[in-house]
Amino acid sequence: MALIELEHIVKTYDLGLSKVPALRDIHVRIERGEFVAIVGQSGSGKSTLMNIIGCLDVPTAGRYRLSGRDVSTLSDDELADVRNLEIGFVFQSFQLLPRASALENVELPLVYRGVAKKERRDRAVEALGMVGLEDRMKHKPAELSGGQRQRVAIARALVTQPSLLLADEPTGNLDSRTGEEIVRLFLDLHARGNTIVLVTHEPKLAGRCPRAVRLVDGLVIADGPGREVAAANAEALGAEALAQFQAAERAVQSGTRP
């Protein structure tokens, strides 16, 4: 049984006057132990898809089965429990509680799991150790660098030992060197048997994943070994960048702002 089964997933944002089709007909299966990158241009629906996989959002149509369970049949409380027990989510913008220390942030999911205080502390310390932050546990997010914040967020996602680790552009807000550290961390976690789904803009990162899925306008248009999908995506990105550059040039020439 596949861990993730997405069948004909559709997500449409209703803005009253217009409807935005963010996902149109997504069909993806992900097995336990896989490491899958999701690539695509900005606005292609990557975050929307990740939020659905992470049970933070529900599809407009289609069926999503997580470990064989149809998510649409679950109550709000059950969804909260799934997020707590099965999923670790890493966000592009970290999403840490600003007033809590690194340690308290990592402990939070265990609070909602009813783990005893002592064990909670031990496990949070252990998770922070795995991301190399054992010496920053008492720091508030504001007192940490971007890379360190992202590592706290990863520790929070790992602390519950979830069956699925999701990361939406985890390196998007980091410089390339810190980004590289985070990538190593994910590769390492994958090597230890974790199932990981990761959204990325960077072809280099996608190229290192065993499998990549490419979205265009809410449709899967490529699904295969990371290197190949990433190369195609890079071309597309290149074309997009070129188009943007040309548009900017025209704007400058005609004296308007791009």
Partner: peptide, 16 residues
């Protein structure tokens, strides 16, 4: 609001 989102994302129920 964001804090609510974070808590809900890591497993807080509505009642919490």
């Amino acid at each position: 609001t964001r804090e609510i989102g974070i808590r809900r994302a890591v497993g807080a129920r509505r009642a919490t």
